[in-house]
Amino acid sequence: MPPALPLSTSRLLLERMLLIRAYEEKIIAFHEAGPFPHVCTSVGQEAAAAGVVSALAPQDQILTNHRSAGHLLARGADPGRMLAEVMGRSTGYCKGKSGTLHISAKELGVILTSTIVGGELSLATGAALSREMLGGDGIVACFFGDGAACEGIFHESLNLASIWNLPVLYVCENNQWQAYVHRKETMVGDHIAPRAAGYGIEALTVDGNDVEAVFEAATAAVAQVRATRRPFLLEATTYRQRGHMEPHDQSYVDPAEIAEWRAKDPIDRQKARLLAQGGLEEADLARLEARIRRDIDEAADFAAASPFPDPAELATEVYA
């Protein structure tokens, strides 16, 4: 089958996924070595992050949630400043005041990260209203999960974005797990996308573990939102390969389910695709992975060597 995307794009998507995986694995390694701040990793969900974020333009904004490393890294965030934030250091994106779960990087357009499940859905309409009223063709991409889609605010957000014609690309990473509960126990239906029709919003479900499929669907969705100034809901069906947070526990997960989804790992699939297409040699891949691991090691060294915030900053930046 001929490649659907330019080789450079296919490689870039793989590279971004490898970076995300290496970053998350570094956090897992920290946890295996000893006490470390809790982190919700996105292992297994890299294709949704890399595929959608790579389809956005610089003037677009991203709102994300507690499982946000992929969105930040795909947008070009510095893993050193991210790890510094996780470790509560002053060199972090939020000067150590966010910690792992709430990293915002305004300079990259990753804004208002909220770990209140559904919080990002309530803020995205406001960010999109600003885009509409202040001019330009920017749009807002809002990442949330199937858990957030069970919050009331999901429905309030879609209703308002539709009735006000707001340029929001809703991106649901349906990763099958809502913290410690399988979505089958708590959610009607297998998918989120059909709910959009109730609000007059177009929606599409895509294989969220196929990064090229995600990228192509997102590219079309972004173009549509940009042109029509109307919301769109893109659902990426994917899987959280780890427990809810690190240190990780999956004792409550059926091992057969984990095995089934590991076999559909988005990075393995993209590697296999590129190798089969001849777009990548094993040796290239090994060099690429070694470079990314080195970068992440350096990022971790930077973070670990960074100072903690001065206690004098405890109550600063509460008010503007």
């Binding site: 406001g126 960010a127 209203l129 600003s130 009223m133 957000s157 308002l160 009735i163």
Partner: peptide
């Protein structure tokens, strides 16, 4: 009507939209 709007009876999204808009220039 862009600057004076009716909303649904939904306080969460009203306040959240305000917060999101305030943080991004309005």
């Amino acid at each position: 009507s862009a600057r004076v709007r009716n909303t649904p009876l939904a306080e969460g999204i009203i306040a959240g939209t305000a917060a999101g808009a305030a943080a991004t220039g309005l």
